[in-house]
Design a protein around this nucleic acid. Structure first.
Lengths: 257, 257
DNA sequence: CTGCGAATTTGATTGAGATCAATTTTCCGC
DNA sequence: GCGGAAAATTGATCTCAATCAAATTCGCAG
């Protein structure tokens, strides 16, 4: 990868896939790595895309060989259960990883499909494992990212009312939007209502009605997939229990046994 | 750690905490390590317990400094939300890890309490990170275990009816029991109904009624916390969507885009 | 611009599981 | 063994969100 580029075109291609030049480097795996370590990471990464909306990146049961980092666009991951029902596990926006759950059994445990035109970095797992081993900072970062996924997933599995879940979901998107340097108030939802509903274990109609109600109550302005948060404080009060990255780690008050 | 033992007592103490001598080594972190690597792992591990029922191992908001492997007994992990409601995240039986979700923010994200008299191995994280770095097989095993947790947690977050959830829960316990070399049919539940209910997002009364119904239908014989699975096949049909370790990775049939 | 299918919204009704309310059983400490 | 408290069960009722059923709006190919 450090061989002389044969033309300008190659240069540009290289730059595009470079972690060091990537605007997402502080959200993604490279976070905390120095330039040398990032270079080593780059050596195993390659780019893929654009993937068209509706096209799959991987499918449940496929042999697991890579994890993926979203560069642009958005993915959803989902399962289909034995009765043919679809369950949306999560949404992945730029800077986020997908496919981590396939490591264990060596097969992908879910399907990943593009919601929009999407490009990703492909991280072939066997080579990534080697680099993780060589770069301690990367090891730390991988463990952190997986740990964060674990918290997020555990939160989702908890029991809350429909409004708490939707409020928490929107708050979560807001935080993720903010981390990417976008507005925490203006969201452009990459997924249809049906997918939000499935993800939150609700009916599509319920999600629609909740959006309507939140709007009536002055929490949001909703126009199709464009959402503006008008009353962040109330939304937070509603959704906090559902939110992941509430900073400190969630200690609210000590409680005796 | 390889210095001459000063007495027999020390020998026994050492043996007790030794990964190499541990009956759980094939379920836990040491899986796949050779004797030398296990010895290195041992050098960072220490034992703790017994922890009495109701006593906490760690609490949400505590500074994260270790993960824990259950040796005997059982733990539950839970959160308390902003409205004081308890949410049971999971149960941990011998050979399983707890506390992995604290890595990311550096604070524990949940509370862990003993359900029975419980002893654990303490794995101080900073030292564990070093050993992971030195022992490639351990790195692989840690990634696998975290990946498995991720799948398990994602499964829990999916939408299923009350009977599917309870059936899946029991199946899951059955598999875990089997992995430990115990009977997959005879379960001794370490937790009260209330905790099962919270974990499955159900009311205690609903869990009780479901146990009664499953018994009527000949699926189970239930006597308080002792459960015998009488009709594994039907239970599997009900609960499969909810179960984690269904071997192959869950690919049922390919589905066109 | 027009029309068609998909997505979304809105309304009416139903139902699974929660909640409220008693018992009954079990578990322990004394 | 006895008494009391916690756990579990059982029954009656209620409620939130699902389902069923249209109506609207939107996106887009022709």
């Amino acid at each position: 990868m450090s061989s002389k580029p044969t033309s300008n075109v190659v240069d540009i291609a290289h730059l595009r896939k470079s972690c060091r030049a990537c605007s997402l480097r502080d959200l993604c795996l490279p976070l905390g790595l120095d330039s040398d370590d990032m270079e080593r990471l780059e050596s195993v990464v390659h780019s893929r895309g654009p993937i068209r909306p509706g096209e799959h990146l991987f499918r449940e049961g496929d042999t697991f060989h890579a994890i993926y980092a979203v560069k642009t666009g958005a993915l959803k991951t989902y399962n289909v259960d034995s009765q043919g029902r679809e369950h949306v596990l999560g949404f992945h926006i730029p800077g986020e990883l997908a496919g981590l759950d396939g490591i264990y059994p060596g097969k992908n445990r879910c399907n990943a499909v593009a919601l929009q035109a999407t490009s990703v970095c492909v991280l072939p797992f066997s080579r990534l494992e080697e680099v993780i081993h060589e770069v301690p900072g990367l090891q730390t970062q991988v463990l952190r990212l997986m740990s964060r996924e674990l918290s997020a997933s555990a939160q989702l599995a908890t029991d809350h009312s429909a409004d708490e879940r939707l409020a928490g979901f929107l708050l979560n998107l807001s935080r993720r939007s903010e981390r990417r340097g976008l507005s925490p108030r203006r969201l452009s939802l990459p997924m249809p209502r049906r997918d939000i509903a499935s993800h939150l274990r609700l009916a599509t109609e319920t999600v629609s009605r909740l959006f309507a109600r939140f709007q009536e109550e002055g929490l949001l302005t909703v126009r199709r997939r464009d959402v503006e948060i008008m009353d962040m404080e109330t939304l937070e009060r509603l959704g906090t229990a559902y939110d992941i990255d509430n900073g400190a780690g969630g200690a609210r008050r000590p409680q005796s046994t």
